[in-house]
Design a protein around this nucleic acid. Sequence first.
DNA 1: TTTTACATTTTTGAATGCAAAACTATCGAT
DNA 2: ATCGATAGTTTTGCATTCAAAAATGTAAAA
Lengths: 221, 221
Amino acid sequence: MLHEEVVGRIRAILLDGEIPPGARIPERELCERLQISRTPLREALKVLAAEGLVQLLPHRGSRAAKLTDKDMRDLFEVCQGLEALAGELACERITDVEIDAIAAVHGDMVRHYRDGDLIQYYRGNRAIHEAIVTAAGNPVLAGLYTSVTARIRRARYVTPMTPERWALAVKEHDAILNALQRRDGVGLAHILRAHLRHKREEVLQAGFAETEGNDLVPRIA
Amino acid sequence: MLHEEVVGRIRAILLDGEIPPGARIPERELCERLQISRTPLREALKVLAAEGLVQLLPHRGSRAAKLTDKDMRDLFEVCQGLEALAGELACERITDVEIDAIAAVHGDMVRHYRDGDLIQYYRGNRAIHEAIVTAAGNPVLAGLYTSVTARIRRARYVTPMTPERWALAVKEHDAILNALQRRDGVGLAHILRAHLRHKREEVLQAGFAETEGNDLVPRIA
DNA sequence: TTTTACATTTTTGAATGCAAAACTATCGAT
DNA sequence: ATCGATAGTTTTGCATTCAAAAATGTAAAA
């Protein structure tokens, strides 16, 4: 198993919440599960700690990182900035074909909304946001986006919505598609920001934050 | 020596260019220099690879990452986005004391400009940009900024400037300070973007990119 | 009963050792 | 002379081992 694969597997375990935030990461157990020794496992944990998904406590092992309200706010704030930038760049660079593909996903998503299928709705929703970032054509930006969104994914795509919130989100997505089609970068950036600001309010209202007592400030992402 | 310290030492070696971009990283040599064994060294290299400073080639060791023109462009683009966001947030949150401190550094910097002291000018310049990011009060943002700027630091703060460019940069910094003092977030964001766009043009014109042939797309930062 | 001191066990962090992969150098064939 | 194969060397990646630190458990004292 390659290094990157080990990192990916553990990342998935953390993002799925299989090891819940704050829980101790059972080194020995993970080792036999992944059929690797402690050396490559620990290398992966250090990388994930740099990403902010794992918290390392010297001589006391590693835990799945918990997010405070403040962390959540900060991450959403950065995410807003990244998506806004991606939106602007995407409008300069996106092809007609890519726009059509997004429009198709958008259509499906709206149908899922009408059907009340939140899971499928979220799936399409996320695909659209990611497609916009991809269309920006900036791998550095895409990398940061991936890492920041990973940390708030559960909050973003698990929080239930009130009918009003959901209706608003769909309206915003109409505007997002519209701005894309008009290639109105500034407009798109504004809508994406508002969209995420609303989502953040939802999440924080829902009290999704995972703790109050950890001042995890990862260096990288 | 603590893990984070090892990472920091190696990062410094890379940023100083002591191991030039593209060069092989001599594992054994670094080990005896830092007085550690290969295990912690390799853990650090994996972390730095996630940051984008090191390129890992499976079974072929690690090299100091090289930046292509495209990498440079992408990094500056993201940096623009991050600084613009930081500028907006800073205007909402910065205290009068912090503004005064920045104004003082600005004054010094202008004096260094008048003296033609580029080194000192750059030092103040960088301090101002970092102070703005700090004033944004968002550690996640600050972390991303640190990691992105680290990768373009040499390009950003080593490239020589023509007198015209330099004069323009100083004018832009006047506007930056002014926007901060008026707490004009949107205005500040615009100026910061333009400022960085000009710097990027300078850097790319100077042909600072380090290679043409590496498609390094680090996951994280 | 609670607390404190001490011994034992567990876990962590790093050094070493080992098998596999890649690199180098030599030699033979064209 | 150049190219390609092959033996030998080096380097990598990982498992294992070892010392130190922390956690746990036990027993004596307050």
